[in-house]
Structures are given as C-alpha cells and as structure tokens.
Simulated scan of single mutants.
Amino acid sequence: MRISKILFLIILSVLVQACSNDDTLNTRVQTSETAHLYAATHNGEVKRYDINTGQITTYANSSSDAGGVHFSAANDAFTLVSRSSNRLISYPGISELGAGGTQNPETEIAGSPDLQSPRDLSVNGDFYVVSDNTDLDGDPETGEGRLFVYARTSNGFFLRNIVTTKFKVYGIEFVGGDLFAAVDETNRLAVFRNFLANSSSAIRAADKIVTIQGMVRAQGLDYENGVMVLSDIGEAETSSDGGLHIITNFDTKFNTATTGGFIGEADQLKIAGGNTLLGNPVDVDYDSAYDVVFVAESLNNGGRILAFNNATSVSGNIAPDLRYALPKVSSVFFYTE
C-alpha cells in the first residue's frame, strides 16, 4: 500500500539530517508499507535499505564485483550482474530470511558465464537483458557493444540471443517493448524498437539516436510514467562534474526529435554543481509516485547513494535530500508497495 507523496518527502528531509555524515538512516518516519532500496557495489556487496525503519540488510553472495541489481516481488528474489563471474545470479526466498545484519540466501540460481564486461541490467517480464561494452575488435576507435538476452526459467537463466550494437553501450532501460541505451562516451541516447521481437543473434543498428544537449557522457537511465532520467558522469576522473538530466513528457520529445537530432536543454531539467555531490552518477532509479530520483554515485567521497526530491520540478546546484556512504556503489533499485 502506498501512502502520500508528501509523507515520503518528509522522510527524505529527515534522512538527510540523520545522514549528514554519511553514516545512518532515519528510523522514525514511515513512507509506505514496503520501501526498500537495493544497492550493489564493485566490492561485491549487496545491501537493502529499509527506508521506513532505517534497517540495513547485507546479503551474502558469490560475487566479488556486482553490477546491475533488480528485485522481483513475483519471484521474491534479487538478481545481480556478477562482473567477477560474468553471469547473472539470482537469490530467491528473500522474504524468508528476515531483515538486518548479514543474511545468507540458501539458494543461488545462476546463468552461464557468457559476459565479458557487463554494465547494466534491464528486465521485461521473464527477459533479462545485460549490456556489455567489451571492445570486440581490439580497436578503441571503433564502437561496438553487445546486449545479452536471457530468459529466466525455474532452473536459471537461458541465453536466448546476443544483439551486437554499432556503438559502445552502457546503461539500458525498457520502455514498453522498446529498449533505450546510453551510447557510452557520448551524450547520445539510442532506441531499439520492439527489441525482444527478434530472437536471432545478429548485428543490429539502433532505430534512432538522439543527442541530449548539455550532457557530456551518458551513463545511467531510468524511465517511469513519461519521465526519463539520465545521468552524466562528465569526466570520469573528476568527482564533482556529474549531473542528472530529467526529461518530462519524454515520449513526445524523443519522438519529435529527428534521427540524428537532439533534445534541447530548454526541454530538460538539470541537476548539477558542487552542492549536488554528483561526480560519477553511474546508475539512477526514478519513482514517479514520490517524484524522487535515487542515484548510485561511485566516485564522490569514495561512493555514495544520493536522492533528490521533486525531481520533475527542481534544477540547478542543489544539495541532495538524502545521502549515505557506500563505497564503490554501482547500481540501485527502489522497490515499494
């Protein structure tokens, strides 16, 4: 059961006070019956933050370097992209483990070790798509990437097909049946229409690529209810030049832009500047019910989770409404009921 957006904003304002030293979570204000933020790190940690109680649960797992993370209520499982074993790994029965401390899932469901340099995960029903930016031809001047399409079964993950892209790919996000992808090392966003309709392994050109003006290097993206949020890591070695680009009425704006065209800065909201603590925001998760963006910030202060309220109405050099430390954080996923 969801409760009011206003109450959720209250908790974030209280959280930022409690977390001013990147140390603890709020334990007083309630948001909804279930409000869990999952996070994975390049140290192999997987944590769940209970926004209601402030309780942190750490899940033991077999990965020493984890990328994208996703929680499925239907499967009562979280799934992560293991960069250390180059496969998808899922842990069911999460609700039976309890909360707080370190929990040890009894069952592990793993896919085959097909990946080489996995980056992000996007889920559409029982299909799990992983982006991989391996340099296939050994030439850094040519761009290529791969999208590994897995079907989840009761026994694990079956590799259905591999789509090779004509550009380096990083963050990915399903919008209905279309798959959007950040063109790595650029400020461009690509789309593959009806992505899952073709089950063959082949090279596929994007149906459309659009430039996001004002962005330096696109990385993470998330879409919900007509709003697309993209993260910009700027210069990878700089811990203070990152940003968020929020595009409302995204479908119309993207469809109106011509192939090879752009979405202008006037059609976006941008959060950036020293107060934001954004340096390398590698992943984002947007929740439209509360109008909040959660961010995996991998570089600033060694790694932080940040959140910004009123995402579709604020912009500029603003401080985050929530922050707490998580070294080498790589991915976030917010689940609420």
Rank of each mutant, 00 (worst) to 15 (best):
residue 265 E to K: 13
residue 229 V to K: 10
residue 287 D to R: 07
residue 220 G to P: 00
residue 271 I to L: 11
residue 241 D to T: 13
residue 280 N to F: 15
residue 169 V to H: 05
residue 215 M to W: 02
residue 177 G to P: 15
residue 202 A to H: 12
residue 178 D to E: 12
residue 255 N to Q: 12
residue 266 A to D: 14
residue 230 L to D: 06
residue 180 F to R: 01
residue 183 V to L: 02
residue 281 P to V: 08
residue 223 Y to K: 00
residue 198 N to F: 04
residue 241 D to W: 09
residue 271 I to N: 04
residue 256 T to E: 10
residue 214 G to M: 13
residue 282 V to R: 13
residue 218 A to K: 00
residue 172 I to R: 00
residue 279 G to H: 06
residue 170 Y to M: 08
residue 262 F to L: 01
residue 284 V to Y: 08
residue 207 D to C: 06
residue 285 D to Q: 13
residue 239 S to R: 12
residue 188 R to W: 04
residue 245 H to E: 09
residue 279 G to R: 02
residue 234 G to L: 09
residue 286 Y to D: 00
residue 235 E to R: 12
residue 277 L to D: 14
residue 280 N to R: 15
residue 280 N to L: 15
residue 250 F to R: 04
residue 288 S to E: 11
residue 224 E to H: 13
residue 258 T to G: 11
residue 217 R to M: 05
residue 259 T to C: 02
residue 203 I to M: 11
residue 281 P to E: 03
residue 189 L to D: 00
residue 207 D to T: 07
residue 196 L to M: 15
residue 185 E to V: 02
residue 254 F to L: 14
residue 184 D to A: 11
residue 282 V to D: 12
residue 241 D to Y: 04
residue 285 D to R: 10
residue 271 I to D: 07
residue 162 I to W: 09
residue 268 Q to H: 10
residue 266 A to E: 11
residue 267 D to I: 06
